[in-house]
Amino acid sequence: MPDARFLVVFDADSTIIRNEVIELIADEAGRGAEVAAATEAAMRGEVDFATSLRSRVQELTGVPVASFARVLSRVEPTPGVHELIAAIHDRGGVAAVVSGGFHEILDTVAPSLGVDVWRANRLAVSGGALTGVVDGPIVDAAGKAEALREWAQTYGVAPSATIAVGDGANDLLMMDAAGLGVAFNAKPAVRRRADLVVGPVDLAALIPLLP
């Protein structure tokens, strides 16, 4: 695999897409409002992410896997995402996504946006429905930072040539590990610690930051 010139690692929910996928899935169980409130608290850093994720996933118990098609139909790409990923590739970079969300949705969304590599949580399933637990280790703040470091090594990219883009508290360690940490459409705690804050919800605004 040839070395890349640089690496950009994105969060997924409210970053490369406008939605919080766990809330879309919760809507299928009629529990959207409760899960949305818990997600907001986790993104602000008020509660431990892994603990919060487990409790929110428990609310998804019984949601049929067949309803994921409806969830996918509601996913909205963030304005400018196609242009930004095209620009990353044009300049010899790699576009990656690491998410506290779910492979079940990201495995369709990521390749449709041109993302090169991605990692997320998995939902346990039994009898065609969600069991309410996360299958395997949880991708939390430490997991996101580890993914950035791992991909940088895989693609031969120096840490200084990495960019991390996120909006929530669980993105902060990844942003700290990157050469440049960008708060995009972010919570106040994230804006305070980021190297750079991008306000407009248009990912094309990040193109001038690319090496």
Rank of each mutant, 00 (worst) to 15 (best):
E59Y: 06
A96N: 04
W118P: 07
E76S: 15
R149Q: 15
L60F: 04
R122A: 15
G92I: 09
G45S: 02
V125F: 14
G45L: 01
G128H: 13
V71F: 04
L148A: 01
A96I: 05
P64H: 00
S126C: 12
E46D: 12
V71N: 02
G101I: 08
Q58G: 05
V115K: 04
N121H: 07
R44K: 10
V47A: 10
T131V: 15
G101R: 09
D116E: 13
V65A: 14
L53T: 00
E46L: 14
A142D: 15
V75T: 10
P111L: 04
Q153I: 02
S112W: 04
G93T: 11
A120Y: 02
I138C: 07
I88H: 07
M43C: 05
V47I: 11
T78A: 03
A145W: 10
S52P: 08
Q153S: 12
F49V: 00
A96P: 02
V115D: 09
R44M: 12
S112T: 11
V81H: 05
V47E: 04
S67R: 14
V133Y: 07
G101M: 11
A96M: 03
R54A: 11
S112L: 12
E46T: 07
F102S: 08
R70H: 15
E76W: 10
A42M: 08
A66R: 13
S112K: 09
G101S: 15
Q153K: 13
A96Q: 05
E59A: 14
S126E: 14
A95P: 12
A141I: 07
G128V: 12
R54C: 12
